[in-house]
Design a protein around this nucleic acid. Sequence first.
DNA 1: CAAATAGTGTCTTTGAGACACTATCGT
DNA 2: ACGATAGTGTCTCAAAGACACTATTTG
Lengths: 237, 237
Amino acid sequence: MPEKFTKLDKEFLDNYDSSTYDKPSITVDLLVFTIEEEELKIVMIRRKNSPYRGMLSLPGAFVGMEETLDEAASRGIREKTGLKDIYFEQLYTWGEVNRDPRMRIISVSYMALVSIEELYRVAGSSEISSHLYCVDTLLQSKENIAFDHMEMIAYGRERIKNKVEYTQLAFEFLPEKFTLPQLQKINEILLGKELYKANFRKKIKDMVVETKEFTSGGAHRPSKLYVRKNNNDNIEN
Amino acid sequence: MPEKFTKLDKEFLDNYDSSTYDKPSITVDLLVFTIEEEELKIVMIRRKNSPYRGMLSLPGAFVGMEETLDEAASRGIREKTGLKDIYFEQLYTWGEVNRDPRMRIISVSYMALVSIEELYRVAGSSEISSHLYCVDTLLQSKENIAFDHMEMIAYGRERIKNKVEYTQLAFEFLPEKFTLPQLQKINEILLGKELYKANFRKKIKDMVVETKEFTSGGAHRPSKLYVRKNNNDNIEN
DNA sequence: CAAATAGTGTCTTTGAGACACTATCGT
DNA sequence: ACGATAGTGTCTCAAAGACACTATTTG
């Protein structure tokens, strides 16, 4: 086994002066997804300065020396939208040398999912709405998006599409209590295709628990409200 | 939408002096998997220095200012094993504040998959064998592993298990020409369970192309050799 | 021909997909 | 009663699972 320990090798750390070498900066870039008006949307900011002035970019934050990546992501989400305690997960780390023309920046992308009700409540509906963009429109459009953020959005979109199939991701876009037609609609939007009602209900029946409440007001049969089944509840069954 | 741009915000970059703030260092940590003697194994190095002196650790490399993350991973694999042009993919980025007691290091983990024949050929069979450890034994053992590398191995092991189900990952562990019993054995090792021969063959029949060659020498019926079907070949069909 | 491994045919079971039906609200 | 949406029963079909069988080599 070749043991060519170069200057950059990790064993070299033992005689390594942290200040000797130039280092990349580390940021997190945040893909905050929600569903508004039956469309998957993402929070974006129009850049006020160069580079990419006037173009859309993802919100982000530098990773401080005393915080983990998850903490930086969580802080970034809170600073930009006010949201706390929402679902998020790390996606991928982007390290092209010139992905930011100003300096070498390596960015860890995170996606966060939140219901539109919670987003309106915390960020203000009019303030946040102007920052929400339809994901599929962005991806199809020729509108230029800053940095490699278009790639990041495409990556996040794919992740959602894949993960909806085998996880309970869809619930993150709904309030605590919801109807099965609502849940089905969310799934259809995330998957990009229509589903058969009876089949959909068979598939998700073990993930939800019915309540005794119903919707009301529509000129049609009321819909029963459900809550998400806690995974720990499985032990009871 | 709260627009509290803190010192660490990315828009702040416009008046940001790259040298002002202390930064984390960035490394790649490498999970080089192979299959030797019907076991999934991983390349590990026993540490010669503190911290974690005498414990096993993953090979790694610093990310240079002029190389991408993929390039750093590729270079690291080459420097430590001699391997070039093998399959690898980024897994996850680890950013706990004190994951390395010496200094703040954020590490992007990569996994690489290679056949034992190729590994022997390039690294030398005796040299590399002393660095190969059975993954499932490591994960079950109480043997201490340096840094957060145990978590990384567990993460990589899961990724393989999941991805084998819906991709052609298993082929990476085999030489160019292989038999279906070999391919089945690889799948069984990666999945951690036995498979029915007839069912397995139905499932993978569109991923392989038979050659006119056979194995020989065993005191039993010879096995036909196959090659992996190039995905581009789908166009022909 | 016996032992060993390679390779195939087919029945069963499970779950996805498709579609038709019934139920309950407001007007 | 009617329009609209909520909710259910069941047939079809394809894939996964299980198992039994045949095939070809060496000694």
